[in-house]
Every structure is written in C-alpha cells, then in structure tokens.
Design a protein around this nucleic acid. Structure first.
Lengths: 203, 203
DNA sequence: CTACTTTGTTGTCAATGACTACATTGCCTT
DNA sequence: AAGGCAATGTAGTCATTGACAACAAAGTAG
C-alpha cells in the first residue's frame, strides 16, 4: 500500500476530469459530489475547497466545454476550401462536438448557472456565433451571398445548427445519419442565403 | 376545519397539474415528490400509487406536453393564408409553446425516459414533424417549392425550429425578439426550399 | 521558529427518493 | 345486505446526498 500524501496536488483538475467522464456515463443528475470524491480518493468534504457548491463545479464544466468547442469551430472556419465548404465544416464541427459530448452540451446550454459564472459563460458561448458571423460577412463581401444583416443571418444559422446539434446529441434523429442532417441543413441555409434577403422581406 | 375525505378523488391529475406549475417555477430539478404531496395535501407516499417513481411522473408530464403542443401545431397548419403563411404559423406555434412552457419543453426532449414510456413518447413527439412534412408535400404538389425528399426537408425545418424553440425557451437569444428569430428562420428556410423554382419568386 | 494560508479530513444535519407494512374507502359480486 | 377486494392513502424507515462547521496537516513568508 502506497501512502497517499495528505494533499492531492491537483484535486481541482482531477475532479473536473472525472466529472466530465461521469456526466457522459450517467448524466448530470447522476453526478454526485460525494461519489466524485470517492472516485479520486478524497474525502467527501474536499471538493468544497475548489467548488463552492455542486453548481459551481457544473459551471466550470460548461466553461471548459465551450472553450474546447470554440477551438474546434475556429479550426473548421479556417479550413481549406471555398466559403461554402468552410461553412459546412463549421456546422459539422459543432454537431460532431455535440455527438461526442452530448451530456456536456446539455450542461453548457443549461439555463441555470450561478450569476457570477454566467457572464463569462455567456461571452464564451457567444464566440461560436461570432465565427459564423465573420464568415457570412466575408461571403457578402465576396458577393457570394446576398446582402442582409449579418448578425441576423448568423443567428439563423446558429439557431438551426444548434437544433441539429441538440437533436443529434439526444439521439432524436431516427431515420437519418448525423452527417446527412448537417449536410441537408447547411445546404438549405446556404440556398436560403444565396437566394435573397429573407429577413428584409418579412411583411 | 373542513374534514378531508380519505380519498383525494383525483390525485393523479392533481399531481400532474401541480407538477406542471412547479417545474416552470423551480425547474425539473426542483421537483420533489414529497413537496408535491404536501402541495396537494396528501401524504408523502401517496404519489407512488399513481407513479412508480419520480421519472414516471416526469414521463407523464412530457407526454401531456407533446399532446398539448401537437394540438397547437395542427391548429396552426390549418390556419388561413397561403402555404407560406401557414408554414410561418406552424413555426410560431412551436416556438411560442416553447416560450410559454420552457421547463416543460426541456422535460419533453429530455433524453432520459423510462423505456416503456419512451416508445409512446417518441411517437407522440413525432407528430409535429409529420405536420410539417404534410405541408411540404402540399407545397411541392403546388409547385411552390422545389422537389426533394419531403422527409429530409421536413427534418431540416423541424431541426431548425427546434433550435429556435430551445434557445428562446432558455433565453439564449439576447439581441433579438422571439418573433424576429422565428420570422428570420422560417424566411431563410422557405427561401432555401423555393430556390430554383421560378414560379415561387412572385409572392 | 512562528503565524498564516491553503488544502484535505471528519462529523453532523436536513431533505430526499424509495420501500414496506398497515389502514380506510368504495365498488362488485353474491 | 354482506363479504371480498382492489384502489387509495398513512406512517415509519433507510441509504444517499449536498451543505456546513470544526479540526488537522502541509506549505510559506516573516
């Protein structure tokens, strides 16, 4: 038996890492601070030194998730190919992330977060849509898609892909593969943006 | 003091009704069987006679939610106006329902449901997309939107509006009103589906 | 060496979901 | 009308959990 040092040394990271695994296994509701403490061989009161309460730990998880996802989205938007290809790539990156970490995505977009964390969380979560917005502006300047408020268009794209991501993550897409859904959705969105300026026609 | 009869008389419905209110006030996680029992003046063991466990009650809530929503969607799809107007109406009905019952919507699309309930839940939940699919077929037969697999197109529409609904329900749409988001989304989708159909340009 | 901070331990409390044994009611059959 | 019986409600119990407080150990700065 090796003697455990009194200090864990990196308890915070260990808890986050283990929590990330746990929520994908049993969901957020199945997450227990005490079980988490047991998993990393620490007493049940130790996590409190790093996370004020359970929600604080979940907030940290969500933030880490957004940062990870933003990296993938940014990489996709900087990929090779024309604008349309890159647009599809971003969509794929988003939905793929959702499928790979379904429970984490749910946590990320969960409505209930501590007020203090929510500010940082919100701004980090908005990074993704800003990438899409930049691509749309780029496409408009290139004359590929029609003029129109880029913010609104980006929001429509985000909203639609968000639906695809959540449904894919929740396994609510029965007859279609995730790939097909993303392709079909991005195709329709792109066709809609190249066709005209829908938001301006509303009347 | 009025004497309470030994039998509640309609405990199941009372529990569901009160639970519906509760989840909108404090979320699903704030739902407690014991508190629910207290609210309807019944002992803490009584709910077990109607719902095997907490999840069974939640399943029943989800089913009731879908049935209610399906009614609104069907009504919207049968509203006055041309196909495009009806399409937008259906989208609005969906998102409006989401905004009116955000917590319920979360429950409805929650991944974790009892295996037995999930079958009925799934089929009931699919009714909405079938309405959209019927409208798309109607539009294709009228030559308004381009040919294409109606099931795929309906899925794209559903997926996109689902994203709008969830984001609206979760108050993740900062700078835009719900109305604007629905209009912009349905506009883009419709434009994407009418792309390449010369007859559709005039409207 | 001593005081202070950080980190982890231990003990405790109320709330909760689930379970069991039992009591009451009212319908159904005879 | 009487007895049986399922449905419904009551009361008590148990393990688990999140939160909290008091204490202990390890590092750190003066």
């Amino acid at each position: 038996m090796t003697v455990q040092p009194y200090h864990h040394g990196n308890l915070r990271e260990a808890l986050l890492e283990r929590a990330m695994e746990t929520i994908e296994e049993v969901g957020v509701d199945g997450l227990s601070l005490r079980q988490l403490a047991r998993d990393v061989n620490v007493s049940h009161g130790a996590p409190a030194k790093h996370f004020r309460d359970k929600q604080a730990l979940i907030d940290a998880l969500a933030l880490a998730g957004f940062e990870s996802m933003n990296g993938l989205i940014r990489a996709a938007s900087a990929s090779d190919g024309d604008l349309r290809d890159r647009f599809v790539s971003v969509g794929k990156a988003y939905v793929d992330f959702a499928v790979a970490h379904p429970a984490l995505l749910t946590v990320m977009y969960s409505t209930k977060h501590h007020p203090d964390s929510s500010t940082e969380l919100r701004s980090t979560g908005e990074q993704g849509i800003l990438v899409a917005q930049a691509m749309i502006i780029e496409a408009q300047e290139a004359g590929i898609i029609a003029a129109g408020d880029p913010q609104t268009l980006a929001m429509v794209c985000f909203v639609s892909l968000h639906g695809a991501a959540l449904l894919a993550a929740g396994k609510h897409l029965d007859g279609a593969t995730v790939e097909d859904v993303v392709i079909a959705t991005t195709d329709t969105l792109w066709a809609g943006m190249t066709a005209g300026v829908p938001a301006a026609q509303a009347s």
